[in-house]
């Protein structure tokens, strides 16, 4: 992909967003991410039928957990995108970066990231 996306984003590639378990999402925050978003294929277009739908449910579950413990649920989000939409990918990256900037750093101390800069993790099933 040629388009530039914000440098504060780290991409974790997974074969399908259906692979993204609740614990991965929580661990990402535990290790210091300020925001996490999951980018799955368009709904209805999952190669594994319902992987992206499951991912959305798990993202929603993390949102619930965050609300209960007083963290901003906006720090986590689910997006859907088809493989050819590079521009939309950048747009999402920028939107999330902006959102996290506005929220400020997560109150969780940084570990294993090695940087105090704000970090957003994109968990991405698109290539």
């Amino acid at each position: 992909m040629r388009a530039q996306y914000p440098a504060s984003i780290r991409i974790i590639k997974v074969p399908c967003t259906g692979k993204v378990d609740l614990i991965y999402l929580l661990k990402t925050f535990e290790t210091g991410a300020d925001g996490v978003y999951v980018v799955g294929c368009e709904e209805g277009n999952c190669h594994f039928v319902a992987g992206n739908l499951r991912a959305r449910k798990r993202v929603n579950r993390v949102k619930e957990i965050f609300k209960q413990i007083g963290l901003e649920s906006e720090r986590i989000e689910m997006f859907n995108l088809s493989a050819g939409e590079g521009t939309k990918f950048v747009k999402i990256a920028e939107e999330m970066t902006e959102r996290i900037k506005n929220l400020g750093p997560s109150p969780i101390s940084k570990k294993n990231i090695g940087s105090d800069n704000q970090e957003t993790v994109s968990i991405n099933s698109n290539s």
Binding site: D21, I23, L26, K27, I69, G70, L71, P107, I108, S109
Partner: peptide, 19 residues
């Protein structure tokens, strides 16, 4: 085991947040 991981992670996040 899975619920242990999720609960533990949630507790750590909550406690970190509360310093």
């Amino acid at each position: 085991q899975k619920e242990v991981e999720i609960l533990s992670s949630t507790i750590r996040l909550a406690r970190e947040k509360d310093k």
